[in-house]
């Protein structure tokens, strides 16, 4: 069933979908990072652990910022 939404609501939804897509892409990178760091640790290469943890922390920070953006848009649009 098709919903007829005002333009501002549609724009808000598009912005949220874009932010969610970015979060999903970042999550996939973070998963790859975790498996790679684990494989390196099991192979006896411990030098990869620090950069992997730093990049993972940066990705988590980016996800958090995107979530706050989603939360903000959600509040702004629904209050109109």
């Amino acid at each position: 069933m098709e919903h007829h939404q005002p333009p501002i609501q549609k724009r808000g939804l598009t912005a949220i979908d874009g932010a969610m897509s970015l979060i999903v892409i970042l999550l996939m990178v973070q998963m790859w990072l975790l498996t790679t760091a684990l494989e390196a640790l099991l192979a006896g290469h411990r030098e990869t652990a620090l950069p992997a943890a730093l990049i993972s922390a940066a990705i988590f920070g980016a996800c958090l910022v995107l979530f706050l953006f989603v939360d903000k848009i959600d509040k702004e649009v629904r209050r109109r």
Binding site: G12, L13, I16, D17, A19, M20, I23, V24, L26, L27, Q30, M31, L33, L34, A37, L38, L41, A49, A52, A53, S56, A57, I59, F60, C63, L64, L66, F67, V70, D71, D74, V77, R78
Partner: peptide
């Protein structure tokens, strides 16, 4: 909106879990 925000929250929690894994390593 509510569904998307809650799903985003779940994704961010997953990201936190992956960060914990990297910190454990």
């Amino acid at each position: 909106y509510v569904n998307r925000r809650q799903f985003s929250k779940f994704l961010v929690l997953t990201s936190f879990g992956l960060l914990v894994g990297n910190l454990w390593i």
